[in-house]
Amino acid sequence: MFAGVYTALVTPFNDKKEIDKECLKKIVKFQLDKGISGLVPVGTTGESPTVTHQENMDVIEMVVKEVNGRVPVIAGTGSNSTDEAIRMTKIAKDIGANASLQVSPYYNKPTQEGLYQHFMTIADAVDLPVMVYNIQGRTGVNINTDTLMRLAKHENIVAVKEASGDLGQMMEVLRRKPADFDVLSGDDNLALPLVLLGGAGVVSVVSNIIPKRMEELVLAARQGELDKARKLHYDLLPLFKSMFVETNPIPVKTAMAAMGLIKDVYRLPLCQASEENRKFIQNVLKDYGLI
Score class of each variant (00 low, 15 high):
Val132Met: 11
Val132Ala: 12
Tyr133Glu: 07
Tyr133Gln: 10
Asn134Met: 09
Asn134Tyr: 07
Asn134Trp: 07
Asn134Gly: 00
Asn134Thr: 04
Ile135Asp: 01
Gln136Ala: 09
Arg138Gly: 01
Arg138Pro: 00
Gly140Ile: 13
Val141Phe: 02
Asn142Lys: 14
Asn142Pro: 05
Asn144Cys: 12
Asn144Ile: 13
Asp146Phe: 10
Met149Ala: 09
Ala152Pro: 12
Ala152Ser: 15
Lys153Asp: 00
His154Met: 07
Glu155Thr: 14
Glu155Tyr: 06
Asn156Met: 13
Asn156Val: 11
Val158Gly: 02
Val158Cys: 05
Ala159Ile: 12
Ala159Leu: 08
Val160Asn: 03
Lys161Arg: 06
Ser164Lys: 10
Gly165Gln: 11
Leu167Arg: 14
Leu167Phe: 13
Gly168Gln: 14
Leu174Met: 12
Leu174Cys: 11
Ala179Leu: 14
Ala179Tyr: 09
Asp180Pro: 11
Asp180Glu: 13
Phe181Gln: 14
Phe181Thr: 12
Val183Trp: 07
Leu184Val: 09
Leu184Asp: 01
Leu184Gln: 09
Asp187Ala: 13
Leu190Ile: 12
Leu190Cys: 05
Leu190His: 06
Leu192Asn: 02
Leu194Trp: 05
Val195Ala: 02
Gly199Val: 05
Ala200Lys: 15
Ala200Met: 08
Val202Trp: 03
Val203Met: 15
Asn208Tyr: 01
Asn208Ser: 06
Ile209Cys: 03
Ile210Leu: 07
Pro211Phe: 02
Pro211Ile: 02
Pro211Gly: 02
Pro211Met: 06
Lys212Cys: 05
Leu217Ala: 04
Val218Met: 07
Ala220Ile: 09
Ala221Gly: 07
Arg222Met: 12
Gln223Gly: 01
Gly224Ser: 06
Gly224Asn: 02
Gly224Glu: 01
Glu225Ala: 03
Glu225Gly: 05
Glu225Ile: 06
Asp227Lys: 15
Arg230Thr: 12
Lys231Tyr: 04
Lys231Ala: 09
His233Tyr: 01
His233Thr: 03
Tyr234Gly: 00
Tyr234Thr: 12
Tyr234Trp: 13
Leu237Met: 15
Pro238Lys: 13
Leu239Val: 02
Phe240Gly: 01
Phe240His: 08
Phe244Lys: 09
Phe244Ile: 12
Glu246Gln: 14
Thr247Lys: 09
Thr247Pro: 01
Asn248Asp: 03
Ile250Gly: 03
Pro251Gly: 03
Val252Gly: 01
Lys253Val: 12
Lys253Phe: 02
Ala258Gln: 14
Leu261Ser: 00
